[in-house]
Simulated assay, not measured.
Amino acid sequence: MPKIEAGSVREHRAQRLAKLIDAAEAILNEGGVEKLTAGAVAARAGIARNSIYRYFDSIEDLLELVVTREFPAWIDAVERAIAAETTPEEKAAAYVRANIEQAARGTHGWRASLSRTSLSPSTRERVRNLHTSLHKALAEVVGELGLPQPELTVAVLQAVVDGCIRRIDQGDEPATVADFAAGATRRLLADDHH
């Protein structure tokens, strides 16, 4: 039997898993969570049904992978946007804009509704922790402003992000929403300084 290098076994597994997550996303996009079964995912991915459980333990685990898949890239994009700015006000505006732009990249709506409805408590907790790392980045920026009520400022800016993302999920034009939110952030922080 030919010897397989560890790297290529790992690569093969990663490719297979990506294929299964892609298949699950496509099914969720088309039919929602009711249509997400092991058989449907295996058929869509072109992988034998009995071998898909080598990659995850349950459909629940696969759902977690789908929901959390974009988080590392999302967090990275937000952190890069903040780092590109020099003043705390512009960093805060960049945080707001980058989150809205990431959400607008297409799949946030059904991911968010999935997060609310179909995930186990432990998965929801992991999703919350991923969100927490984003909020920490915002808290650091707000800390630089030296405002009298930093926690309240973070909560209000996060509410702006959440409200704007909901508008995009409902069909508003992402660029318009992002511009509005960044402008609102600048005005809010400018008012706080007086």
Rank of each mutant, 00 (worst) to 15 (best):
K3P: 04
K3Q: 14
K3V: 13
R10I: 15
E11G: 15
R13K: 13
R13N: 11
A14F: 04
R16A: 14
I21S: 03
D22W: 11
A23L: 04
A24Y: 08
A24D: 03
A26E: 10
L28T: 12
N29P: 00
E30L: 13
G32C: 11
G32F: 12
G32L: 08
E34F: 02
E34Y: 05
K35M: 13
T37C: 06
A38S: 13
A38W: 01
A38L: 10
A43Y: 02
A43K: 15
R44C: 04
A45D: 02
G46P: 01
I47V: 15
A48D: 12
N50I: 07
S51G: 00
I52E: 01
Y53M: 04
Y55A: 12
F56I: 09
D61V: 04
L62Y: 09
L62Q: 08
L63F: 09
E64F: 13
F71C: 02
A73Q: 14
W74Y: 11
I75W: 02
D76Y: 08
A77T: 13
E79H: 11
E79D: 11
R80A: 14
R80I: 07
A81P: 07
A83N: 02
P88T: 03
E89I: 14
A93V: 10
Y95M: 03
Y95L: 03
R97I: 02
I100M: 04
E101L: 10
A104E: 06
A104V: 10
H108C: 04
G109T: 10
W110R: 03
W110P: 01
S113A: 10
S118N: 09
S118R: 11
L119C: 06
S120P: 03
